[in-house]
Design a protein around this nucleic acid. Structure first.
Length: 486
DNA sequence: AATATCCTCAACCGCACTCGC
DNA sequence: CGCGAGTGCGGTTGAGGATAT
């Protein structure tokens, strides 16, 4: 197909029209036709010129190969730069990109991009250079913010502006560094353990209602609450996909998810790349490309969980299995930006002499995470769901209190009430969605954390798992009758 | 040298949109 | 308003060349 010289084959004739590669003779006929009649009205080509090609085929041939001023050959470095920038801004809008690259066709750009993307994924490289990611992050997050606002308007709910993740991230400040810790300014409270300068923060995005716990040293606890299956914010089941991917995790690729450095948080490109249209695209790349030839190290990190725009995403490295749930068509940008899976394994952190965050236990009060781990061993080697609640803070030891400069407590409490009533209105006994039960609980020696969806697989039979099995309350979600939950 | 596998890219396909009737 | 033709767009396919085994 790369050469269309010579006599074409007749084997691709269908309904009297030829398909397949164009011959030089056909090209000549088409060019002559356009010379006489101009572009357009492609279906008339066959009638007027005798060319046995459909109008679509003629248009494509003309646009991609015959029209004047077409550039041939490889893209120049400058063109490549433009493509990268345009793709970062536009996504897979090949025609729009082609409009900004004189002499280049959408097909050409598309092929180039797909090839390049695969190559870089194989190499474990980010698709977008970091500087492009920087520039684009704000744009996409702004779009995300607009979407959120639209949803909020639709829901008729008022949220404090200060809870807007997007506005913060799209601002000139807060880039590159401290994304995670900066999130604490959202719907969060920072708790300070006097003398230890240690804090646990909880935050949930007002859209996804996913919680993330992390201490202020930047080592998150890798915890995310699932949305209720009946949450108005949860996409319909048809919008969810769930795919089990079996592959050895490549260390370089996985770094984007499981980055140990905040700077790497912006090196999300390979994740984002596929996410432009469908986040899962990234992961099949792993599946396809990490076959027999690579034997990457087994990840030592715990489950990663991150929110999707308007939905739920879970990424759980488990040996050589990744379970990924997400929203079709989500931009994936927040997925990446919210990727908080930077935590070292507990053992490593302990080895480094790092202090563990405190965990608020409903019955035992505040405990050190290390103690939680010991408790876990008695009940379940890996399971421990950190639970927190703003109301719980009142009963916290006096050594824990609000840091100054936090948002209005009243404001946050109002939001809490809002959410609380929402959660309480969920009907019970609703079967959990597929993504909820398909996920595999990872086994790790990491932080005292768990993802409820992951816990579900291990501890609750998917067949009987319903919302009635969940104990929903503000800031917490637990499986009823499930031992080992803090 | 033979074979398998990978890669590239031209072409196709399905869908959505516009426009005229 | 509905219909069909024409067109554009983005995703996918598969032939054939390149490379690896």
């Amino acid at each position: 197909m790369k050469s269309n010289s010579g006599v074409g084959s007749d084997r691709m004739i269908s309904h009297g029209l030829k398909k397949g590669p164009w011959t030089a003779a056909e090209d000549a006929i088409l060019m002559e036709y356009v010379k006489k009649h101009g572009e357009g009205n492609w279906n008339a080509v066959q009638k007027n010129s005798g060319l046995m090609r459909c109008g679509k085929s003629c248009r494509l041939r003309w646009a991609n190969h015959l029209r004047p001023n077409l550039k041939k050959g490889s893209f120049s470095p400058e063109e490549e730069r433009i493509i990268i920038e345009l793709h970062a801004k536009l996504g897979n809008k090949w025609a729009r990109m082609a409009a900004q690259l004189p002499g280049r066709t959408d097909n050409e750009i598309k092929n180039y991009w797909n090839t390049r993307m695969k190559r870089r994924q194989r190499a474990g490289l980010p698709i977008y250079p970091q500087e492009v990611g920087d520039d684009v992050a704000g744009i996409l997050l702004q779009q995300q913010q607009e979407q959120e606002q639209q949803i909020q308007q639709y829901q008729g709910r008022k949220r404090p502006n200060s809870s807007s993740l997007s506005s913060f991230l799209s601002s000139s400040q807060g880039r590159k560094h401290d994304y995670i810790s900066s999130f604490s300014f959202l719907d969060s409270m920072n708790l300070s353990s006097a003398g230890q300068n240690q804090a646990i923060s909880s935050c949930y995005s007002n859209l996804s209602h996913q919680f993330k716990l992390y201490n202020n040293t930047g080592n998150n606890i890798d915890f995310a609450l699932p949305l209720s299956p009946n949450s108005p914010f949860l996409p319909s089941s048809s919008d969810l996909y769930n795919e089990n991917i079996t592959a050895q995790l490549s260390a370089p690729s996985f770094q984007f998810i499981d980055s140990g450095s905040l700077d790497n948080t912006l090196s999300f490109s390979s994740l984002l790349m596929g996410a432009q249209t469908e986040p899962i695209d990234f992961v099949p790349g792993l599946k396809a490309d990490l076959g027999s030839s690579q034997t990457p190290p087994r990840p030592t990190t715990p489950a990663s969980s991150y929110t999707s725009s308007g939905g739920v995403c879970l990424v759980a490295p488990s040996g050589n299995t990744i379970n990924y749930c997400g929203l079709k068509g989500s931009s994936g940008l927040l997925d990446a930006l919210l990727v908080e899976s930077r935590s070292l394994s507990r053992n490593e952190r302990q080895k480094n002499g790092e202090e563990f965050p405190q965990v608020i236990d409903k019955e035992k009060g505040v405990m050190d995470a290390a103690n939680v781990e010991n408790e876990e061993e008695e009940v379940d080697a890996n399971e421990c769901v950190v639970e927190t609640h703003r109301d719980d803070f009142s009963s916290c030891p006096s050594s824990i209190g609000l840091k100054s400069g936090d948002e209005s407590i009243e404001e946050m409490n109002a939001m809490d009430d809002d959410l609380h009533s929402l959660l309480n209105n969920f009907p019970s006994s609703t079967p959990l969605p597929e993504w909820y039960t398909k996920s595999t609980r990872i086994s790790n020696n990491g932080s005292p954390s768990g993802n409820m969806a992951l816990d579900a697989q291990q501890n609750v039979s998917p067949a009987v798992a319903t919302t009635a099995d969940l104990d929903w309350s503000l800031g917490s979600c637990s499986w009823k009758n499930m031992p080992g939950i803090c």
